[in-house]
Design a binder for these strands. Structure first.
Lengths: 255, 255
DNA sequence: CGTTTGTTTGAGTACGGTCAATGAATGTGG
DNA sequence: CCACATTCATTGACCGTACTCAAACAAACG
C-alpha cells in the first residue's frame, strides 16, 4: 500500500502497521509534509543517520506525559494522536490531533519537560529524533536549521488559528472549520479530502473546539440534514465543500 | 528611573521614553526576561554587535502588519503591544499583549511574512534583530541557539495556556486568569504585581478572552463588589490575590 | 468646548450547556 | 459465538451564561 493509494477511509494512518523498515527520511512517503520538507538529499542522509529509532505506541497509550523529561521530538510515522494539557483542577484541553508528518514535543524545549500529554488515538509509530543531536546537526547545516525554525514557527501560526476559532467562532463555524482542516491535512498527505474517518470521539472533538459533545453531535446532524456532509459514526464524507467553506467563514489554517 | 524603581502604575513601560542609548544587551535592564536570559557575557557582546538598531513605534501604529516581509524579530524595549490576527471575513482575534522583554515576530519564520499585526498600545521601542544574522550567530554559539529554541517553545506553551483558557473557562475565570497573568508578568519585570495600569481597552481584553466588552466590564465590576480588586478606569489593584487565584481555578501560565 | 472614544449598567434574548433517556457500536469473557 | 458490559452517539426538554441592544455617562483628544 503506497501512501498515495488511499481514498479508502480506513487507510489514512500513513503506513502499514507491519514491520518497521530501517529509518530513511529520504525514501519516507512523508518527506514532503514532515520536518524534512525541502532538505537536500545530502542533508536527508545526515538526518537519517540520527534518526535510528522508531517507537510504537498502542491505542490509548501515551507517547509522553506532561512532566516527562525531554530528550527527543517525535515525527509521527503512522497513526493519530491527541495532545492534551491538563490544569491543576483537572480541566483538560485538547490542543491538537497530530497525524503522520506532524512533529510532537516542541512544547518541551522551554522547560526541559513535556508540557502536555500525547495519547495515541490508534496504534501508532513515531520516529525518535534526539533533540540535542538535532540542534547539533542544525548548527552544521543551515538548511536543517531553517527547516527546524519553520516547523516551530508553523506551530505558532497554527495556534493563532485555534485561538481565532475558540475566540470568535460560533459552534457551526467551529465544526465546519475543523472538518475543513482535517480535510486539507488528509489531502496534503495524499488521501481523499472528501471521505475520511474521524479518529476521535465527539467528546474529543468538542473538547478541542470548546464545545460539549452534544453540541458537536447536533451540529453534525444539522450539517447532514442540510446535505453538506454525510455522517455515519466515525465516517465522514464532505458532500458540498463550497458550502462548508461558506459556513466556516474563512480559510483558517489549523494544520 | 531604573527598571526596578517602579510601583507607580504609569511607570511600567520598561524604560524612559527619552533618548535611545546605544544598544547593549549586557547592560539592558531586561536581560533577565528577554531572549538573552542565561547567556554568558561573551555571548551577550556578540549579540549586541548584531542588534545595532532600535525602532520607535507610536501609539496606535503598527510595528508590522500581516503580510509584511519578514527579516527581523523584535524584542520589546519599552511600551506595550497587541498582536492580532484577522480573518478574511473581518473577524479579529487578539493573540497577546507583548510587553518589554517579549519578542515579536516568530510567527513570520514559517512563511517568510508576518502572520499577524503588531500594534503599539502606547509609544514604544523595539530592538531590531535581523533574523538571518540571529540564525547565523546561533549556529556558532550553542548557548544562543538553545535560548532561541527556548523562546520559540515558550511561545508554544503560552499558546496552549490560551487555548485552555478559551476552551474551558467561564467568563469570571478568564478575567481572573488574565489579571493574574498580567500581574505575574509585571512582577517578573520588577514592577508591582498588585497595582498596575491596563494598557488595553475593555474591548481588547474581551477580544483576547473570547468575551464581549460588556461582559468584561460587568465581571470587573463584580470582582470589585466582592472586594477582590479595585478598578478605576485603567488602573487596577489586586486586593486579594489568593481569592483571585481561587477564582482563576489554576495557575495557568499565559506569560 | 465639542467630538470621539471608552466604560458602565440595564433589560431581554439566544446559543450552547445541562440533564436525561435511548440506542448503537465495540469489546470481553464465558 | 453469543451474552453482557462499556463506551460512544443521538436526540429531547429545559436552563443559564454570556450576547445583543440600548442608554447614560466619563474620559481623552483636537
Amino acid at each position: 500500500m503506497s501512501l498515495h493509494s488511499g481514498n479508502h477511509p480506513s487507510d489514512e494512518s500513513g503506513s502499514p502497521v507491519g514491520a518497521s523498515q530501517p529509518v530513511c527520511c529520504g525514501t519516507c512517503g512523508l518527506r514532503d509534509v514532515c520536518m524534512v520538507e525541502g532538505l537536500s538529499a545530502a542533508d536527508l542522509d545526515r538526518l537519517t543517520g540520527m534518526v535510528s529509532l522508531r517507537r510504537r505506541v498502542k491505542r490509548g497509550e501515551p507517547l509522553f506525559r506532561s512532566g516527562d523529561a525531554f530528550d527527543a521530538v517525535y515525527p509521527v510515522h503512522f497513526g493519530f494522536f491527541k495532545t492534551r494539557v491538563t490544569a491543576e483542577d483537572g480541566r483538560e484541553q485538547i490542543t491538537g490531533f497530530p497525524m503522520p508528518g506532524d512533529v510532537l514535543g516542541f512544547d518541551a524545549i522551554s522547560a526541559g519537560a513535556f508540557q502536555c500529554d500525547a495519547i495515541a488515538l490508534e496504534d501508532a509509530e513515531v520516529c525518535v529524533v534526539p533533540f540535542r543531536q538535532l540542534e547539533a546537526l542544525s548548527r552544521e547545516f543551515d538548511s536543517l536549521q531553517r527547516q527546524l525554525h519553520r516547523v516551530l514557527s508553523r506551530e505558532i501560526v497554527r495556534d493563532q488559528g485555534v485561538m481565532m476559532l475558540l475566540g470568535t467562532m460560533r459552534a457551526e463555524q467551529r465544526v465546519a472549520t475543523f472538518l475543513l482542516s482535517l480535510s486539507r491535512r488528509f489531502e496534503q498527505r495524499g488521501f481523499s479530502p472528501h471521505d475520511f474517518n474521524l479518529r476521535m470521539t465527539r467528546e474529543e472533538i468538542g473538547n478541542f473546539l470548546g464545545l460539549k459533545l452534544e453540541t458537536v453531535s447536533r451540529t453534525l446532524s444539522r450539517l447532514q440534514e442540510e446535505g453538506v456532509v454525510t455522517v455515519d459514526g466515525k465516517r465522514l464524507r464532505i458532500a458540498q465543500q463550497g458550502r462548508l467553506h461558506e459556513l466556516a467563514g474563512v480559510g483558517l489554517s489549523i494544520e
